[in-house]
Nucleic acid binder design. Structure first.
Length: 112
DNA sequence: AAACTGACCTTAT
DNA sequence: GATAAGGCCAGTT
């Protein structure tokens, strides 16, 4: 189905998230131009399993850095394990140093 | 076509 | 500072 034009935008950005970095739904929505569609970003993630290649949805968290979407994974602890596997410290389902690991879609060229 | 849902964010109390 | 409600956009039923 090629009606996923909006979803593809979200998937494309999430796939470009660097290793050991996380981003927020609002940041992606803002980059897409639809800042108010922050909920849509998460909605698209719900269908991330239908998209290919699969997107690292575990790198996408809410504004608080809380793993709100962990329940959408096969196992709630899977998302936390994946983030910890990337060097991200998780505490109480929340990303530690969230500001430190926070990555913005337009921050690709900001890095050397 | 209308109403409901949703892995959110902002503002108000 | 924490909790409650509203607003926003797109998709699904």
């Amino acid at each position: 189905m090629d009606k996923e034009n909006f979803f593809e935008r979200v998937y494309d950005i999430v796939r470009q998230i660097p290793y050991g970095r996380v981003t927020s739904y609002g940041a992606i929505a803002e980059y897409l131009g639809t800042k108010g569609s922050s909920r849509m970003v998460g909605y698209a993630m719900n269908a991330c399993g239908t998209a290919y290649p699969p997107v690292p949805a575990h790198r996408v968290v809410n504004h608080q850095g809380l793993l709100t979407g962990k329940r959408a994974f096969a196992s709630p602890n899977l998302m936390q394990e994946l983030l910890q596997s990337e060097g991200i410290e998780i505490k109480n389902d929340k990303v530690m140093d969230f500001k430190h690991v926070f990555w913005h879609p337009a921050d690709l060229q900001t890095m050397s």
